[in-house]
């Protein structure tokens, strides 16, 4: 039973239409000072969420990771959380 429901759920996730958040909202520049928006794309440990999970396109993922790292340097976002 459990296995069946699990496979169904994962199938649903795969079948869902994936889209890039930044392509939809047409962002040309990623500003690290808007850290609240970027925080969406970090895990609860402060790690950068991989593309396969967030659905961000490669072009924007590159900009995003750069912006996140800048925000970390300026102490707007944590490198790690305990």
């Amino acid at each position: 039973m459990n296995n069946n429901t699990m496979t169904k759920q994962s199938q649903n996730l795969l079948n869902k239409k994936r889209y890039c958040y930044f392509c939809v909202n047409i962002t040309k520049d990623m500003d690290y000072k808007q850290w609240q928006q970027l925080q969406r794309f970090t895990s609860s440990y402060g790690k950068i969420v991989p593309r396969r999970r967030s659905g961000v396109c490669l072009k924007h993922q590159r900009k995003l990771s750069k912006a996140l790292k800048r925000a970390r340097f300026m102490a707007l976002l944590p490198y790690t959380t305990r």
Partner: peptide, 9 residues
């Protein structure tokens, strides 16, 4: 001026 802010660390 972005003002006073708490650091993440």
């Amino acid at each position: 001026d972005l003002g006073r802010r708490k650091f993440a660390y």
